[in-house]
Design a protein around this nucleic acid. Structure first.
Length: 411
RNA sequence: GCCAGGGUAGGGUAGUCUGGUUAUCCUAAGGGGCUGUGGAUCCCUCGACCCGGGUUCAAAUCUCGGCCCUGGCCCCA
């Protein structure tokens, strides 16, 4: 039998409905903050991704050549594409731009829990607002969106300047090693690295600062940071808004284009792959030939959110099943039409089942049976049977529509 | 790329150690008993040993390779 490609998934209707429900909650929050949805191509020039991350990531992407010999890649993430689109299409639009997207991405990696080769991200990019309140807005939105999904999580907020300032006279290659060790809280490795440099006092400062929960103290340790006022303002807005977060100045993020505030969200109940959100302030546009506009954004790992939410009991949608006899079938089609026009999910027998069998099938799949036999066809009424309670009554079509519709609106 | 455990009808499973009848059971699905009242029950039907090589008179079972799944490591834009 033909199998689906490694790391991909099929979604049956139950799961699809659950995913769409969460997707729409996210979209609705974004909409209320003024973030409008955009869409970029599923594949892009390979160069778009290598310019930003180096040739090294080719091994982790789906790369292919098209019939014209162009080197292309399935998008491994969306931020780069959104910034490319901004430069191509919207450079002169009034700032700031508030954009969001929900789209699938592809990475050639070893699948495991919460990690698939095709996965979905819900992301947000705020382009062209380089202020403390802009940073705060994006983080507040991140918290709002995660809250809307119902996932249990921890939000960590940091800023790259602290560690950067402490490491300003360290050579770049070593800086990178140290930042990775701080991000992983690998203090053993960190000590070894710094002992090799003969800078034990630096190890002390770094280890203190990554676990520091007090912003004032962090500034004392890190020394004179030019962004101090903006950081204090941003955190002040978050505190005033009651955003639940913890300070974590060790967050490194994977890429060099982040320049300021960075933040990450972690689900409480996932295993190794528990990061469900990541973002920060970055400058990327100049890489693609645009202006050096500042942006702030994040992406939510949608599939991990769904894994974290687990099997949630779904409220079954109200379904009306039209049950008819041969004599009632023409009338039944008209009744079905009326139900569908009223927005009610309505199904008719297609299997040539007898009356009893139709009702039997309806009992398994529907909330109401709408019975149209010879008598109803003649009178123009319908018999509405509530399949949970067993009650039934013969009433006008309008009354039946009203009754089923009322249940539907209660969900 | 590395480590561990797995793969038997649509779903869930027994059988594998110790090779040997028509591969077990539950469920789902389709039909019938039942052409105006359903979920019960009874009967019938459909439907599987992941793929390939090896050993053997004989392989779901032993063996080798591959593919895929689950979890962990690495990585994580």
């Amino acid at each position: 039998m033909l199998q689906k490609p490694r790391g991909t998934r099929d979604f049956l209707p139950d799961e699809m409905e659950a995913r769409r429900a969460v997707e729409w909650r996210l979209r609705d929050v974004a909409r209320r903050w003024g973030y409008r949805e955009v869409c970029t191509p599923e594949f892009e020039d390979l160069e778009l991704f290598t310019m930003r991350s180096g040739e090294g990531i080719i091994g982790e992407m789906y790369v292919f050549e098209d019939k014209g010999g162009r080197k292309l890649a399935l998008r491994p993430e969306i931020t780069a594409a959104v910034i490319r689109m901004y430069i191509n299409e919207a450079k002169v639009a009034p700032k700031p731009l508030r954009w969001c997207y929900f789209a699938d991405c592809f990475r050639y990696e070893r699948p495991q829990k919460g990690r698939y080769r095709q996965f979905w991200q819900f992301g947000v990019e705020l382009i062209g607002a380089d202020t403390a309140i802009a940073d705060a807005e994006v983080i507040m939105l991140a918290a709002d969106m995660l809250n809307a999904t119902g996932v249990r999580y921890e939000l960590k907020v940091g800023h790259l300047s602290f560690v950067k300032n402490l490491l300003k006279d360290v050579e770049p290659a070593l800086q990178r090693t140290i930042r990775a060790q701080l991000d992983k809280k690998d203090f053993e490795g960190l000590k070894a690295t710094l002992d090799g440099m003969n800078r034990p006092e630096l190890a002390e400062s770094l280890m203190t600062i990554v676990s520091c929960q007090d912003l004032k103290k962090a500034f004392e340790i890190a020394g004179d940071i030019p962004e101090r006022e903006r950081i204090e303002q941003t955190m002040g807005y978050l505190d005033a808004a009651g955003v639940r977060y913890s300070l974590n100045l060790g967050i490194a993020r994977g890429l060099d284009y982040y320049t300021g505030i960075v933040f990450e969200g972690f689900a409480d109940n996932l295993g190794a792959e528990n990061q469900i959100l990541g973002g920060g302030v970055y400058r990327l546009a100049h890489l693609f030939g645009g202006d050096d506009v500042a942006s702030c954004g994040f992406a939510i790992g949608f599939d991990r959110v769904m894994v974290s939410l687990g099997e949630t009991a779904r409220t079954k949608e109200t379904v009306a099943a039209i049950v008819c006899t041969d004599e009632g079938r023409t009338r039944a089609l008209a009744v079905a039409r009326a139900f569908r026009d009223a927005g009610i999910r309505t199904e008719m027998d297609l299997m040539g089942r007898g009356f009893g069998a139709q009702l039997g099938h309806a009992a398994k799949s529907a909330t109401f049976a709408v019975i149209i036999g010879q008598r109803e066809a003649a009178s123009g009424e319908v018999t509405l049977k509530n399949l949970q309670s067993g009650e039934q009554k013969t009433i006008t079509l309008e009354a039946a529509l009203a009754e089923v519709g009322a249940v539907g609106s209660r969900g």
